[in-house]
Design a protein around this nucleic acid. Structure first.
Lengths: 341, 341
DNA sequence: GTGGTGTTGTAAGACGTTTTAATCCTCCCC
DNA sequence: GGGGAGGATTAAAACGTCTTACAACACCAC
């Protein structure tokens, strides 16, 4: 135990020890750390040298306590196991890591209670800002954050109040693209499978789907609701579809659902796309892999995350000069086997 | 702005304001928060009431600064976009959330530099402990943490030093299971596709594969190395395989690689499994979806994460009484179409 | 009553950093 | 050589909580 490679002694080395080693005052060390330009080049070098020798690691808690702001942000998604959110998280983490920030990851599991609990935890940790894919539209859920002056950027969701950044994808258009495509491929009787409509994504895609039918002046959209957006729920939906008259086409609110539906239909000998056209949403990496590659609606997942992260840091770094932005991407149709009749 | 629903005033409400409201001293409020049993039921109730009324949110930074330990842990994985790690992270996050802890998520992107940078950041944030899937076997990479007394649990990796917890899956056995299966299905000339052998997972699975061939007294294993464990790299591997004589079977170090290989082989008209048997590893949810469902080796991903998280908290809560554990799961073969000749 | 015992509550000093206002130089110009 | 001017550095006071003594109190047995 006596020979630790680096100089880290038992008596934890702080800014004070560094100052002593470099022959300056603690204040100067702090300046080197936070405003390097305020200190002469020679002194700065000496301090950095001391930091290196002593293996000093700055205490983030103390720093945040005194300065009011830290180098931590929060990220709240619905479900990490869903590749769409994993992609988002990946984009956020990459950018934050480049900028020297840490990301506290939370999953709401689409439960408002868990969301509220996590937001509170984030507030306690004094994060600099939060990226959140909210569980529903109620803007007051972010009150805990606003009261403490914590910036929030909506992720995959439009802004819920005037002065707020948001990065989203136009899900109404996405739903319309999907159903336009299905109608064009000859479907009339279309089933839309989604999670609860309290999820904005599910609701918007439905709106788009109905708009497409209305605009075309033909076709119908029926709606099948399942508990969540997983492949397991997709299988349940598939079974319910099989129990009745099969529609011409099934449009699922995400690819996982579609993969579940596909699995069940194929297992029961239903020919896809011959008998039933099938469409997913998100265009996750695995959408092209199935027996019948899935048509889907592509979203720039990773970029969504990166851009939202950038917006958040911009807002945090300069709250006054920052212009709130609502960025909305347009989704893109990806046609594959599952809708080729 | 004048009518915030909750009582959160501009002059941030701290333990002091709560104390005033409840007619006790700040110390007592702290006791209610940290040692509820030390304070009489009536007083406790009064304090909790005040906390509620004022919408008090404890300052985690101050708390951690003074107490030395906080309610934050770190999690470092190779790649969030990989469903295997997303599953791990999901398990970790669930358990930590139940226990009221936050998780700082980091991705090393299998780069030691980025791993080191992130570990340093975690040390700065004063996390209580860290769960890490290390990029290589060098135990000294955790020195930054040890010096500051931060507990570490190895995740999907055996312990690298004596007194350490670790949760892993036996990858040598996994590799053996896979190749045993391929040999049994008649393959002799087997290609193993993996990322760099500096990744323990890749190395161990290779060891297992060779052991299987040796034990059987027949067959050969050739080794094809690609940059990382993604589907894109799988496609590159597939092209390199096509450039030479096709082996009887391809064993990939994970399912993403296998999906990439499969895509290329099918595109070039190679019959899988007729001409080439194909096997993945991890048994991610999407392994069963492809045109030719992938045989794979299953790992208890989510449980791995949960258990490691539990171990870490156990170690943090009682460093003395804690018995370090090395838990090793056994993987399980899942045979599907891709290895049915 | 008195002294002991146990329980509740309090006062005040950390924790390690940032920051403000003040001090110290050095250099330059008249 | 005196008088700034202006940059580099410092001293000391925060930041909000936890914790260590310690005081207050009630209760009980003698």
């Amino acid at each position: 135990m006596t020979s630790d490679s680096s100089g880290g002694r038992d008596g934890a080395v702080g800014i004070r020890e560094v100052a002593a080693e470099a022959g300056v005052s603690p204040g100067t060390v702090s300046n080197v750390l936070n405003r390097p330009d305020r200190v002469a080049a020679a002194t700065r070098e000496r301090v950095l040298q001391a930091i290196e020798t002593l293996g000093f690691v700055r205490n983030g808690s103390a720093s945040r306590l005194r300065a009011g702001r830290g180098r931590l942000v929060g990220l709240m998604v619905h479900d990490l196991a869903n590749p769409f959110f994993a992609g988002l998280a990946s984009g956020v983490e990459d950018l934050m890591s480049e900028r020297g920030h840490g990301v506290i990851l939370c999953s709401s599991a689409t439960s408002s209670e868990r969301e509220a609990r996590n937001l509170r935890m984030l507030a306690e940790q004094g994060v600099r800002g939060v990226l959140v894919t909210p569980v529903d539209d109620r803007p007051e859920r972010l009150a805990v954050l606003r009261e403490r002056g914590i910036a929030a950027v909506m992720l995959d969701h439009a802004a819920t109040r005037p002065h707020q950044c948001a990065v989203s994808v136009d899900d109404v258009t996405g739903g319309r693209l999907a159903v336009d495509h299905l109608l064009e491929r000859g479907a009339a009787d279309i089933a839309y499978v989604s999670g609860p409509v309290s999820l904005r994504q599910c609701a918007d895609r439905l709106t788009g789907a109905r708009a497409a039918v209305e605009a075309a002046g033909r076709g119908t959209v029926s709606h099948l609701v399942v508990d969540d957006l997983t492949a397991a729920s997709g299988e349940k939906a598939g079974e319910r579809l099989l129990a009745g008259d099969l529609p011409d086409a099934v449009f699922c609110a995400n690819d996982l659902l579609a993969m579940g539906v596909l699995r069940v239909l194929l297992r029961q000998g239903v020919r896809v796309p011959r008998q039933v056209l099938l469409m997913g949403y998100d265009d996750i990496e695995y959408a092209s892999a199935p027996a019948v590659p899935l048509s889907s609606v592509r979203q720039p997942t990773y970029r969504l995350g990166r851009i939202a992260a950038e917006l958040l840091l911009d807002e945090c770094d300069d709250p006054e000069g920052h212009a709130h932005q609502q960025i909305r991407f347009q989704p893109e149709l990806v046609a594959r086997e599952s809708t080729r009749p």
